[in-house]
């Protein structure tokens, strides 16, 4: 009895917190996606009373709207592509970086990790606006790039307000979230395993592919989850850098809530996004779980 009490004392507050601020709001949003929009925005009442009494005032209209126009599905697919490209390039750049930090002398490691998370010390929006300046037509970066392309008779290209700008900034914003779990994994590898692999005849490349890489898969999965999922819902980056062509599903959801004031449709989009993310991440985790059976 006393033992259980102690357990609840410790796990109770976070459970309560999640129920109040996650489970209940999610339920409210699921319900909202089946309701009608109010006349001046917001939501129409759930129960309607008329002569025959009270009856439920729910509808599938929002979901019908989602599937009636391919433009919404396309926005989903486009967002998915942005997220995949971002995750891919984050992984490609973060892996060597994490490996470098993990293999460097222990006295430098903390400093290098600190440098990776240093950007977090300045405001997220300010960093995005910095990219706006960097990619703007007047910037030295744009001038240099266009000057270079001009040699080959190409361009000039516009960088700002393009999908390219969005993905470039997404990679920048999400890179530390890939580096940190990878580093945490790689740093724990027993160096004796690489000695053993070399001792048994493996050259440098084989040591990486057969030992380091498979052992780092849990770190890769964690990094993918941390980069991929947040990108699906992001709206600030495309808002500032994307123009009209770089719009993502997060922008549409934000618009439905704040500008169109169509809460049921915004809720339905959010629910669809959550379900989509769950299917992708859940499927990946299942796949990873099978692969990771051997880890101890």
């Amino acid at each position: 009895m006393a033992k259980n009490f102690g357990k609840w004392l410790i796990s109770g507050p976070p459970v309560l917190y999640l129920i109040v601020f996650f489970v209940i709001p999610t339920c409210i949003m699921v319900l909202a996606s089946f309701r009608y929009a109010g006349e001046y925005g917001g939501l129409a009442p759930v129960l309607l009373r008329d002569a025959s009494g009270a009856h439920l005032n729910l509808t599938l209209e929002s979901y019908q709207e989602f599937f009636s126009d391919f433009i919404y599905s396309w926005l989903f697919i486009k967002t998915l592509i942005y997220a995949l490209v971002t995750t891919f390039f984050c992984l490609l750049m973060a892996y060597p970086l994490a490996l470098l930090i993990a293999r460097s002398a222990s006295k430098y490691r903390d400093l290098l990790v600190l440098l990776v998370i240093l950007p977090f010390w300045s405001n997220f929006l300010i960093r995005i606006y910095a990219w706006m300046i960097l990619l703007g037509p007047q910037s030295a970066f744009s001038a240099a790039l266009n000057g270079f392309l001009g040699i080959f008779g190409v361009g000039p290209v516009r960088l700002l307000f393009t999908p390219f700008a969005v993905v470039l900034c997404l990679i920048y914003v999400q890179l530390p979230f890939m580096v940190l779990p990878l580093y945490a994994n790689l740093e724990k590898h027993d160096p004796a395993l690489l000695d053993a692999a070399q001792d048994l005849g493996a050259n440098g490349w084989q040591r990486f592919w057969r030992v380091t890489f498979p052992l780092s898969l849990p770190g890769i999965y964690a990094g993918i989850a941390l980069v991929f999922v947040p990108v699906l819902g992001i709206f600030a980056v495309p808002d500032i850098l994307g123009g009209t062509r770089g719009i993502m599903i997060g922008n549409l959801i934000k618009q439905e809530f704040l500008e169109a004031r169509d809460w049921p449709f915004g809720s339905a989009l959010s629910i669809m996004l959550t379900i989509g993310a769950m299917i992708i991440v859940g499927g990946a985790a299942l796949f990873a779980g099978r692969r990771r059976k051997g880890d101890v």
Binding site: A192, L193, D195, A196, D199, G201, A202, P214, L215
Partner: peptide
């Protein structure tokens, strides 16, 4: 090179690859 030497080692920690059977 170490990987070419006809010499193998049994390590104190065994250094078995945990991800392989």
């Amino acid at each position: 090179a170490p990987e070419k030497r006809p010499i193998h080692t049994v390590f104190q920690s065994y250094a078995l690859f945990p991800h392989m059977t």
